[in-house]
Design a binder for these strands. Sequence first.
DNA 1: CGTGTTCTTGTCGCCATGACTGTAACCATA
DNA 2: TATGGTTACAGTCATGGCGACAAGAACACG
Lengths: 250, 250
Amino acid sequence: MATRTRDDSVPDGYDPSQFPAFAVTVDVVILTMSEGALHVLLVRRGQAPYQGMWAIPGGFKLPTETLHEAARRELVEETGVDAASLLTQFGAYGDPERDPRMNVVTIGYLAVLRDVGAVVAGTDAADAALMPIDQVLDGSVELAFDHLQIVRDAVARVRVELEVSGVATAFVGTTFTLAELRQVYEAVWGVHLDGANFRRSIVAESGWVIPTGHRAQPGAAGGKPPELFRAGRAWKHGGPIRRPRNQKGR
Amino acid sequence: MATRTRDDSVPDGYDPSQFPAFAVTVDVVILTMSEGALHVLLVRRGQAPYQGMWAIPGGFKLPTETLHEAARRELVEETGVDAASLLTQFGAYGDPERDPRMNVVTIGYLAVLRDVGAVVAGTDAADAALMPIDQVLDGSVELAFDHLQIVRDAVARVRVELEVSGVATAFVGTTFTLAELRQVYEAVWGVHLDGANFRRSIVAESGWVIPTGHRAQPGAAGGKPPELFRAGRAWKHGGPIRRPRNQKGR
DNA sequence: CGTGTTCTTGTCGCCATGACTGTAACCATA
DNA sequence: TATGGTTACAGTCATGGCGACAAGAACACG
């Protein structure tokens, strides 16, 4: 490469031909809970390369918007959900061969929201689907480009995010039972949590969840109707549930 | 914006004028321990904009290299240290106004290494310096562009990295005492750790540190000569020391 | 030889946490 | 209506991690 001085953290010239030009895109990994398991929203590619293969939604960053705004726009276009606060950036990907046609650097964003099944079916059910995360991670479903790595990183991120922040409530509805919330932790971490201990830990962290005073309908199998909660202030400094490290059997 | 289909996660056309072009740079936040405090390596800008102001080193990503390779190259050029394994990507920054001249998207990398004071002085002491992290975070030292935010994010990242991975040993030399290692945790987290409990936790996680059998020279004030260790296998799944949450006094 | 300093081992108490048991409140049958 | 099945929730207990502190060991210095 050309000689460089140590203060060239940004270009000083105005001639675009003096430095390499890249396309910058934003890819959004949309995670949701469906039937007790973690799912990721995928779209099917219509053109080459990787035609017909599954991929995560994304698009170009515009020169007039921030990365966060671009991710937010992609999320709205894809699901109709406008949830800027739930967008978390988790990685950048710029390998030269990651796109066979040109140099593309993409920024990975993570979006966590409650079941978007209805939304997906409504917009364009033919080429969009919720895929169980396991089938993606184990290679059963092949993804275009380096999207498998991107999804891997996103899942790793949400795992730690669940412990240090309050993302858990983003997976469920505006009101929820503690069993639903517990399912989130169990699905994302792949562990079993005792219901009684879980409740204690949650209500101990005062302000995390707020009882509505109402109760949900019991399931078809019966059972005591569970208490309904709504999300309180998201978090203060570390989540209410820590990832278990010393479990006995499982 | 123009109409979009849902499978345009990457461009399908080959005409570069069809999509916005960006310059992509890599900025490296180099953190190190110096005199018991966390420091960051800064360089002084020679040209406008922000001429004469402090900034973090960085440079263009080449089309033929990965982001990681670009960061590694920057680290080598800046300090002469070639430590690819210590480079961690922690964020991407692409606000339209972040560079007044053009659209620049930068990828932030974090490098942790032991005292680079000698290296810095050797290369170009005039416009490179180690700055205490506190003076940067509290605004005493003004940084160019959005570099303050980048440094903030890097520090936040190294704080959690210290807990989940084994970065701590990267701050010290190839052989070190447990007191030195403890200083790293205390400086980064801003807490006090009991030396006795610290030693127990470290040696309990078998393989983390390996005793060399030798002892270091006591300081000027005397004291029992401390045992010398070297870094073992970096980590398995979570670091040996967890960030304290329930401390008494401080 | 004392004194001060640092490293290192020992001990103790609290409490977070995992595991388990029991009870309450609902549904489904007979 | 009784009975069993299921879920929600309270209560109890034991273990262990962790913070606090005390004491002993090994050095420098006067």
